[in-house]
């Protein structure tokens, strides 16, 4: 569980103790919230994963049966596969694309505010409207995409209705809708880089590339790291796109993991099994996050590292 190594156990100096107290005071709001609203339901879900809980009946304890059932469940493996493919493809693409757009948005361009707003618009439109739009854009007969392809003499696929292309369609959509948020975070990060650093590079005779390579990228690593972790967690838990558009089909081609959890929880009366699924996903996400944190010490640069 530990990403940052704990300080060695030793008697704390009065000053260190004072600082520690201050630290606890600062994180107190979160600790209170954790204990009051978050921890209970999470622990309850762990307990429920060892029960047969049909939602409208009280749960009955059944030990590890849910976890045993999981390994023989073909749909569990299918949903894991779909989610893994999606995560591996979309996370790096979203990260790179949004970084590029952020760099572009950080240039001296006329009407900068307007461009930034436009590029953020997909995040502002309600999800149902976007979902309908995509159904319409991806319509195999008349949709914009296939109409365009036809100009080039290509007969486009059935997209969301095709077992082969449905997942790809959702990946495509994620690039469109998933770029705005990390872009905004990158932009904020680019603002924080002091101009003095760039001036220093200039003094040493460095050009645009040198500035990018030796100032922008290192200074941005904490932000890149944040986006990496959060996009990864987000991709592993993706839900609303498949829920609104494909319902996991056709033939389970877009059965994402959290969609499968949701179906078990609220459609199949298998809340106990859904909880077990959720905890398995939790372990997977936690493991990957810890790995990424470990890896981050090799490439993330913090100005304030001295204060560790």
């Amino acid at each position: 569980m530990v990403a940052v190594p704990l300080p060695r156990r030793r008697r704390m100096s009065p000053r260190a103790r004072r600082e520690a107290m201050e630290g606890y005071v600062f994180i107190l709001p979160w600790l209170v919230g954790l204990l009051a609203f978050v921890a209970g339901p999470i622990i309850a879900s762990l307990y429920l994963s060892f029960t047969d809980y049909q939602v409208v009946q009280p749960p009955t304890f059944i030990g590890v049966a849910n976890y045993q059932q999981l390994f023989g469940d073909g749909l569990f493996w299918q949903s894991l596969k779909v989610t893994a493919i999606y995560t591996v493809v979309t996370t790096p693409l979203q990260l790179c694309l949004s970084f590029l757009v952020a760099l572009l948005m950080n240039q001296k361009v006329r009407l900068l505010g307007m461009w930034r707003t436009i590029y953020y618009v997909p995040n502002l439109v309600p999800a149902i409207a976007t979902a309908m739009l995509w159904l319409w854009v991806l319509n195999p007969e008349f949709g914009l995409v296939n109409t365009l392809l036809r100009y080039f003499g290509i007969q486009g696929p059935l997209w969301l209705s095709s077992t082969r292309w449905a997942l790809f369609s959702l990946i495509m959509m994620s690039l469109w809708g998933g770029v705005g948020a990390p872009m905004l975070i990158y932009l904020a990060g680019l603002q924080g880089i002091s101009t003095e650093l760039y001036e220093a590079v200039e003094c040493d005779g460095g050009g645009g590339w040198a500035k990018f390579r030796y100032i922008t990228v290192p200074m941005m690593t904490p932000i890149i790291f944040f986006n990496l972790v959060m996009n990864m967690i987000g991709a592993l838990q993706v839900f609303s796109g498949p829920y609104l558009l494909t319902g996991g089909g056709p033939a389970n081609a877009t059965l994402f993991y959290v969609l499968y959890i949701y179906e078990n929880a609220f459609q199949f009366f298998k809340m106990g099994y859904a909880s077990a699924l959720a905890w398995v996903l939790f372990i997977i996400i936690l493991g990957m996050t810890v790995l990424v944190f470990k890896w981050s010490s090799m490439w993330v640069y913090y100005e304030g590292e001295l204060r560790r």
Partner: peptide
């Protein structure tokens, strides 16, 4: 009592007939 579960499977698994995938 499990209509909610199996009807979904029928819908999902039969639809490849009409897309020509199966």
């Amino acid at each position: 009592p499990d209509a909610n579960e199996w009807w979904g499977k029928v819908t999902d698994q039969l639809s490849p007939i009409f897309s020509g995938d199966k």
